[in-house]
């Protein structure tokens, strides 16, 4: 069976499976919104400064907040079908639009962090597996465990102390020099300078995860029978590692990479608040501070969909890597 067919079949299966999950998440989201103290009317009244019982009542009627819960759920679903997540009085714009503004920032940060984490993680993990049991492995293992134990926000602050405050090499926050008119390459450099610290803070934890995972996966594969077959063919250790071990080890590693997208989104929330990075995380933080639950739950829903998308990509990558997936048994 061709790889393409395999991938298409996996895509169909994955998407079909995603439907009930998304539905479940939406319903959960709705009920969390119901549980939140105060409703939209309260919030709007609070924003407006003063409100009488009557105006509150009118607001509730206008937004359908006095309907039975199931009707409200139906309305909520209906709105979602039109890609509407509600309106944020605080920001004075629809939540979808608000999130749309902040999403690219977070995605760039995450992509950068993921790239750093995979690149360094794979390298460290392969090194650890190659030297397993010997000094380099032990030192790197401890280093990885240390990365694994450091809170992202703290290392973020410490990096600011070192690189911004003490050394003055890199900016301590923001996403670009305000009022600058860099173009072309200079603009990219400027952007990168602002991104190095947040991306590193976010990546560190995942560097540790991927390194440990790569080590385990490589060692696991190394012990398998087909690796012995490869050696019996007369292949050199380097060729065996690259052509036989790594390819097979990538399968579990890809799965894990996908599984951590959700975690990384969470990490971004904290890191963005540290670096005042204009992304979803900062928005979430502001929403929490302003008790703006519509925005908060909109972010939760959207980030879940992001996770589902990431999982789909991972599944496709797996179908490409592993011929046993997507097979009709």
């Amino acid at each position: 069976m061709s790889a393409l067919l395999r991938i298409l079949r996996t895509l169909r299966r994955t998407l079909l499976q995603a439907v009930p999950t998304i539905l479940g998440i939406i319903i959960l989201n709705f009920f969390l919104l119901q549980l939140a103290p105060g409703d939209a009317a309260d919030v709007m009244a609070g924003e407006a400064g003063s409100a009488t019982v009557e105006t509150m009542q009118a607001l509730r009627e206008r937004f359908g907040l006095d309907n039975p819960v199931l009707v409200q759920l139906a309305n909520y679903l209906g709105n979602l079908a039109q890609f509407s997540l509600g309106f944020s009085p605080r920001y004075g714009m629809p939540v979808t639009e608000l999130i749309g503004q902040r999403l690219p920032g977070t995605l760039t940060l995450m992509a950068m962090a993921l790239a750093i984490a995979i690149l360094i993680g794979l390298t460290l993990g392969s090194l650890m597996a190659a030297f397993s049991g010997r000094l380099p492995d032990r030192l790197l293992s401890i280093l990885a465990l240390l990365f694994y134990s450091v809170p992202g926000f703290w290392i973020g602050l410490m990096l600011i102390v070192l690189f911004s405050v003490t050394l003055g090499w890199l900016p301590s926050g923001g996403a670009g020099t305000i009022g600058s008119s860099y173009t072309g390459f200079a603009a990219i450099v400027d952007k990168a300078r602002y991104m190095v610290l947040p991306a590193t803070s976010l990546a560190l934890f995942y560097v540790a995860i991927y390194a440990r995972l790569t080590r385990a996966a490589m060692l696991e594969v190394k012990n398998q029978d087909f690796v012995r077959t490869a050696y019996a063919k007369g292949l050199s250790p380097v060729v065996v590692t690259v052509k036989h071990v790594l390819r097979n080890a990538l399968i579990p590693i890809t799965t894990m990479a996908g599984m951590h997208v959700g975690g990384m989104l969470g990490g971004a929330v904290v890191v963005e608040t540290v670096y005042s990075w204009p992304g979803l995380g900062r928005l979430a933080f502001e929403a929490v501070m302003g008790r703006d639950y519509t925005v908060l739950l909109g972010i939760l829903l959207l980030s879940s969909i992001l996770v589902i998308l990431a999982n789909t990509v991972v599944d496709l990558a797996q179908a490409w890597l592993d011929p046993r997936i997507g097979e009709q048994k």
Binding site: I25, G262, G263, L297, S304
Partner: peptide, 24 residues
């Protein structure tokens, strides 16, 4: 498994923030 799946799809920390914000 469906339920587990739903909870695993929701990004942990974001959900945590929402829950704590709602529950005080």
């Amino acid at each position: 498994v469906r339920i587990i799946e739903i909870f695993q799809t929701l990004p942990n920390f974001v959900l945590l923030v929402v829950l704590v914000a709602i529950a005080q």
